[in-house]
Amino acid sequence: MADLVIETQELTKRYGDFTAVDRLDLKVRSGEVFGLLGPNGSGKTTTILMLLGLTEPTAGRVQVLGFDPARQPLSVKSRVGYMPDSIGFYDELTARENLIYIAKLNGIPRKEAYRRIDQALERVGLGDVAERPVRTFSRGMRQRLGVADVLIKEPELIIMDEPTQGLDPAGAREFLELIQGLKEERISILLASHLLHQVQAVCDRVGLFRSGKMFVEGTVPELARQVLGGAYRIQVHVVRPDEAIQQALGRLPGVLRVTPRDGTGYEMETREDIRPQVAQAVVGAGGELLTLEIEQPSLDEIYARYFQQAEEEVEHVPA
């Protein structure tokens, strides 16, 4: 089994009567990108603050890279890079000066610090504007400077809170490419976000979070199977949909559902990619196949469906 970079047991944070994080068991493996996904106010930031020892847990245990953040915060913070949500810099200082301060706080020797700073700025594409005051930076540039800031300490684990918030689609895509690059270096990443569709592509595993609880976790296809009941969705377009075709499709193995689509074909939910069988079935039932498309369900859909189910269950609980 891969070693864990983050492990929490029954981690709980209460503010007065309000429970922000509720008995959370979170495990992040070395080298993976884990997405902590949930709506605003679900307790993601609170969880992260506890992971870094920036706020004290009310109960439960935390281990980050084998250290206890409450007792050994310096060991944790010198190995973990943290990008807070709505990250801020000293506007009147240049990008380089901002990073020099961080390097000093980390006690990195001057020469080594300068080397790392140059490297990090180059890496995030800010090499040319290193001497400009951060005041002049766009949101996207700030976000990339945030990554450079985190890279200075050559972290084993990076924790990012809402990293794509406020970025335009192009900026977000660029940013996710940057994360992809870090992942290839085997840096473990924990990414908290409420923008599911943006982070779906880079996460190895995700955990769905709401009201301080993590309801489900796993890879996106796993979640799809768990929540939607099927991982694949196949769109079938035929010339003349009829009863015979629909029945033939319904008899295929691994089919969960066949829904007619406004007179042009069917939408199928299946456990496997069974497009060849679908094609055969259509032809076998005397139909004429036009197109056959497969799409993976998006996290948004899983999420919406999951919480819809959860709410329905709550409503059906007898009073």
């Binding site: 920036l54 915060p73 913070k77 943290y82 990008m83 807070p84 000293y90 506007d91 961080i102």
Partner: peptide
């Protein structure tokens, strides 16, 4: 300036 959490995330 939202720099506090970034600075306190240093060791």
């Amino acid at each position: 300036r939202r720099t506090l959490s970034r600075v306190l995330a240093q060791p």
